[in-house]
Design a protein around this nucleic acid. Structure first.
Length: 588
RNA sequence: GCCCCAGUAGCUCAGGGGAUAGAGCGCCGGCCUCCGGAGCCGGGAGCGCAGGUUCGAUUCCUGCCUGGGGCACCA
């Protein structure tokens, strides 16, 4: 059990004894650290509700508090705050328990969810750019967070590989190379094993054909037809589609591997193709939800109490081809059948209406009953300095691979300035540069709240001082360095003693909050909660480090205790950075 | 027009109905023969506006202003 939950239990008991609901006993870290370590505000609200004087109620609660050994002081302050300071021995006990526990006192969840995190979502045939950064690292972080919290989690990339863009790329290639066998309906022989295009070709073709379809309705119609034919199994198009998919996936695998993002499932819209027709048929059957409208099949999802206009969800176009609404619904159905009971769609906030529509159809049709959690875990847009979606100076997009190279270059430069790194082998320097560059990039992104738009600032991702990823990595490296040198000197970590120095006490107090921080991050599905907390740990450690010279300490018992404290701090920070997807070098 | 999200320090951002709203950057000044100075310590300034709920509102509600986004055959 964590210190905070134990304290809340003690106070819950005491409030119950005083005739008040035990929820009033909730204990939180104090907002006024100079007054107390913890506070309980329950007497204020409960006093109001029961018509009792909050200060008197507080006194009554304090009178029946159990386990007095834990407390150094308990006071009523102001209108009825209960200020709590625990003893240093109590802190030492809890710190030791945390150090001895593989789960760091993180509680197992009451309900172990089978969670599907749907994130990344790159479209086929396009190189990944900065816009994919958030989807990828927020999703990866949430996946790891839920795992640490004790849930059963899978991550699915859910590639966009079955919609209109493919039809567009088919007609674009046909325009350029009409003689390829993929376009010859009479062709029977095996299609070439080599792809006629590279991913670079596709990336160049895509905006061209999109523009043409926008200007010319006939071209748009042809793209729709090609999409329809592909979805209905035209052999040449399918063969071509496989080439497109293969060249796309090859590069995406590399990009995601470089980024440290690992999917359990590499599915896509096309994965559920066989489910689409039966699904639509079932929904359109007599008495079903779906109906025809202007040739298309739609489901009306508006409700009488809707405050806003709620358009119907389109299941098919008027030509019978499918849209991403259809594949999303079919994918949702597949996931329910596979037993997932919580689905997190880590997707740009701008798709909010789409998910609301899909979720409504899932509920109305009974595809997902109320026991299944469906959430659009939305995130904000990455904007340029002008407040518009980010573009490079030339107006183009910045490829993710190029961005990773830029931050790695900056980290390498910084490393070359560092005297300490002069004799590192080149391979290690390269590895450190990559870890530090990515650390800056990921922390810079994840420390923003998930839902807020933020301004993309390259300087921020290439600066390594202050509240940055490298600051946290550096703190961890210092810890590793101390433990390494202690080991060389034959010094062993020992039992954690009661803290005697302010900075030491502050560090322990910070560490003991871990279980509640994890809980809160899970509740709000927000990695920035962890980023903030990890920064506070690193800061508290750096202060402790300045105040207490561990390797020079003359009292061997205290020194051994400090080594244990460094060890548990390092393990805690490592856990947090791992959830954020940030690696820690051995030295930097 | 309707709906969603946001407006906090010069800039970029945190902030869980509670007491005196926090960081980082930038600017100024300091850090002992000391475990790694990508560090530590000190210094100024702020909750868009108007109401409401509450003992108490940056936080919840309403309206307005400003910015971003969405609104059936794209994803």
């Amino acid at each position: 059990m964590s210190l905070l939950s134990d304290l809340s239990d003690r106070f819950g008991d005491a409030f119950e004894t005083a005739g008040v609901e035990r929820a009033a006993g909730l204990v939180l870290p104090s907002q006024r650290p100079e007054l107390a370590q913890f506070q309980c505000n329950g007497a204020l609200g409960a006093g109001k509700r029961t018509g009792r004087n909050p200060r008197e109620l507080g006194q009554e609660v304090l009178a029946s508090i159990g386990d007095r050994w834990m407390f150094a002081s308990l006071e009523i302050a102001g209108p009825g705050f209960i200020n709590i300071v625990v003893t240093d021995d109590c802190l030492a006990d809890y710190a030791q328990a945390m150090a001895d526990d593989e789960r760091f006192a993180i509680a197992q969840p009451e309900h172990r969810w089978k969670v599907m995190v749907d994130y990344g979502g790159p479209n086929m045939s396009k190189s990944m750019h900065v816009g994919h950064l958030r989807a990828s690292i927020i999703g990866e972080s949430l996946k790891r967070l839920f795992r640490v919290a004790g849930h059963d989690v899978s991550g699915d990339i859910h590639m966009g590989d079955w919609g209109m863009p493919i039809g567009q790329l088919i007609i674009e290639l046909e325009r350029r190379q009409p003689d390829l066998p993929y376009f010859d309906e009479s062709f029977t022989g095996p299609y070439p094993g080599e792809s006629p295009v590279t991913l670079d070709d596709l990336s160049e073709m895509y905006p061209v054909v999109v523009e043409r379809c926008r200007e010319n309705p006939d071209e748009a119609e042809r793209a729709r037809q090609a999409t329809f034919d592909l979805q209905n199994g035209r052999a040449g198009y399918l063969a071509l589609w496989r080439h497109y998919r293969d060249v796309s996936v090859a590069e995406q695998k590399k990009d995601f591997a470089d980024l440290g993002v690992e999917f359990d499932l590499w599915r896509g819209e096309s994965t559920v193709h066989d489910r689409l027709a039966p699904l639509v048929e079932r929904l359109a059957a007599d008495g079903g939800l779906a109906e025809e409208s202007d040739g298309a099949i739609v489901v009306y999802v508006d409700r009488p109490d809707d405050k806003k206009e709620m358009p119907p969800l389109l299941l098919t176009r008027s030509d019978g081809s499918y849209l991403y609404s259809t594949t999303d619904l079919a994918t949702l159905e597949q996931r329910v059948e596979e037993g997932y009971d919580l689905m997190l769609y880590v997707v740009d906030a701008r798709q909010g209406l789409h998910f609301e529509q899909v979720f409504r159809v899932a509920r109305l049709s009974g595809i997902a009953d109320d026991s299944v959690g469906l959430e659009h875990t939305a995130f904000g847009t990455v904007n340029g300095p002008d407040g518009k979606p980010f573009k490079t100076r030339k107006g183009g997009i910045l490829r993710l691979a190029d961005l990773m190279e830029i931050v790695t270059d900056a980290a390498r430069e910084r490393l070359e300035e560092a005297a300490i790194a002069q004799d590192y082998p080149p391979e290690e320097r390269e590895r450190i540069a990559r870890q530090v560059g990515l650390g800056a990039l990921k922390f810079g992104d994840l420390s923003n709240h998930r839902t807020s738009n933020y301004i993309f600032d390259l300087d921020r991702f290439t600066s390594f001082e202050g509240k940055t990823g490298p600051y946290l990595q550096y703190g961890a490296v210092r810890m590793k360095s101390i433990l390494r040198r202690a080991s060389e000197l034959g010094l062993e970590p020992g039992p954690i003693m009661a803290p005697t120095v302010g900075q030491e006490r502050d560090l322990i107090l910070r560490l003991l909050r871990l279980p509640e921080v994890i809980e809160r991050a899970v509740d709000v599905r927000a990695p920035n909660v962890l980023a903030e907390y990890a920064f506070e740990i690193a800061t508290d450690f750096n202060r402790f480090y300045e105040a207490c010279h561990i390797l020079r300490e003359e009292d061997p018992v205290r020194q051994a205790s400090w080594l244990s404290l460094v060890d548990v701090t390092l393990r805690t920070l490592t856990l947090l950075l791992d959830i954020l997807g940030i690696e820690i070098p051995d030295r930097m």
